[in-house]
Design a protein around this nucleic acid. Sequence first.
DNA 1: CTTGACAGTGAACAAACATTCATAGAACAT
DNA 2: ATGTTCTATGAATGTTTGTTCACTGTCAAG
Lengths: 219, 219
Amino acid sequence: MEAPTTKQQAILDYMKGHVSEHSYWPSIRDIQAKFRFASTNAVFGHLQALERKGVLQRIPGAARAYKIAPEVVPDLSATVITYEGPGENVIELDAVPFLGAIPAGFPDYTESSGVVASMQAPLPAGARRRPPESFALRVRGDSMIEADINDGDTVIIEPGTPKHGDIVAALIDGETTLKRLIKQGSKVYLKAENSNYPNLTPVSSLVIQGIAKQVVKAI
Amino acid sequence: MEAPTTKQQAILDYMKGHVSEHSYWPSIRDIQAKFRFASTNAVFGHLQALERKGVLQRIPGAARAYKIAPEVVPDLSATVITYEGPGENVIELDAVPFLGAIPAGFPDYTESSGVVASMQAPLPAGARRRPPESFALRVRGDSMIEADINDGDTVIIEPGTPKHGDIVAALIDGETTLKRLIKQGSKVYLKAENSNYPNLTPVSSLVIQGIAKQVVKAI
DNA sequence: CTTGACAGTGAACAAACATTCATAGAACAT
DNA sequence: ATGTTCTATGAATGTTTGTTCACTGTCAAG
């Protein structure tokens, strides 16, 4: 996808900020005034460009009506640390408590609007978190197959505040699942990295247990 | 505040749902079509009523532009469990680890838009969470004075998913504070229960350590 | 019985708003 | 040199949309 220019990005950011502050979208004339354009058509062109580049969706004819496209997530597969034999990685793995297997969850595209949950994340049954609070989980299923995390792999989960694009261990319906975190405005999505399942299932609440930092590949 | 009628509430719910689904507000004619009104004025009257009752704010002249007023929180002071002497409550208190005092935080009205944080909540320094994961905190300050939680009281914090109106222990700028959780659409607020401080301070992220379930009053 | 609040129809208006057309300079590759 | 793309101006157009006015029926309080 083509990247927006700096001005287009500035306009997009202003629109996002306007929604965040006022809870409704700005009109074209609002944007025009903000950026001191002499013509509404200048804004119009930029909005068309933003839509053509896939980051903004306009609703033709409707006033103050837009949708923000989910941000594109950079491919993390290249940054995954792969276990290739005895070495420091092994020690690091052994140093954290092993808590069990991830029931892998459903390889769907889960939406959670108005996320509030922020809580002591429940651990798998019988497990007890110890300092340094990192733990390992065995992956079951292929919901993250396109992030190069496959069935049988082991992921190292660490506590922390997840950023957009992070792969997180999230608790959905009592099961720990591995998904990529997608922020879109004030909404949060959990995205399975498996193109075979483009479904979208809403969940009421969201509890994140940690961020997947490393992957130990099954050999 | 006067309560909306069932029809007015239905319209308000539809508007909220429309925003949640489409990310922009419906027009009056959208609402008209949804509820099969023969006139736009029927919708107009209901919107005026909703605004008069303080649950909806209209932006005059602007299309598809509204704000939702923060929901009113029911008074929980009557449901607070008060410690009145030796008994089961004492045992319950002794059964949970006592972790320290809440630096009570600032008695302000804190806003957090686009909340994402959902994480292993940091514990007060030197503390270590143990099963059953409940703990007690001593209250300092009078930010929750109107919820009948005063300086010197002890609150029992339990993990769980907080609902709208729950009193939560939240970590703001590294300090644990006691506030009431307010959900407003996709936004989350932390409200101090002290009418002397109607301030509104934005915070970037939000970590909730637990829900205040009981209050042990200082005698 | 009357008054007033409430909920609705129907028509019409005026402002807000997205959209289109014509035009043009600057940057840039062909 | 020349065409293309990007960005912008300026004016005009037509729809969308909030808003108002006049009128009707219902229901409960006084």
